[in-house]
C-alpha cells in the first residue's frame, strides 16, 4: 500500500490503480514469423526482479490512463513515473 503520483491526476492511493506487469515488452512485429519459444518468451516469461523494476500501471478508478513506473520491488519505493511512449529514465 503506497501513494502513486499519477502523471494526469496527481497523488492518489495505490488502490485506485491496477498493476499491469512488466513494461517495455514489445509486441512482436511479425507475429506469424514467431517460433513457439519466442511466443513463450513474449507471453509468459518475466524478469520478476527483486529490486528496481520497470512496470506499467493503469489509473483504473481515476483517469483510466496507462503510464509507466520505476519501482523498487524490495521496498515498494517509487523511483520515477513517466508517460506511455516516453523514454524510460536511465537506471
Amino acid at each position: 500500500m503506497f501513494l502513486i503520483n499519477c502523471p494526469y491526476c496527481g497523488e492518489r492511493d495505490q488502490q485506485e490503480f491496477k498493476a499491469g506487469g512488466e513494461a517495455h515488452i514489445d509486441r512482436p512485429k511479425q507475429p506469424t514469423e514467431l517460433s513457439d519459444d519466442e511466443w513463450a518468451e513474449y507471453l509468459f516469461m518475466r524478469k520478476n526482479i527483486k529490486g528496481v523494476q520497470f512496470e506499467r500501471w493503469n489509473h483504473a478508478h481515476g483517469c483510466r490512463k496507462w503510464f509507466n513506473m520505476v519501482r523498487d520491488t524490495s521496498n515498494d519505493e517509487i523511483k520515477a513515473i513517466y508517460k506511455m511512449g516516453e523514454k524510460p529514465p536511465a537506471q
Binding site: 516469461m45 524478469k47 527483486k50
Partner: peptide, 18 residues
Amino acid sequence: GHSSVIANMAGLRLPLES
C-alpha cells in the same frame, strides 16, 4: 517467492510473478 531471483543468477527466465 524468490525462485526468479535464483533463476536470474543462472541466466534463466521463469513465467512467474512474486
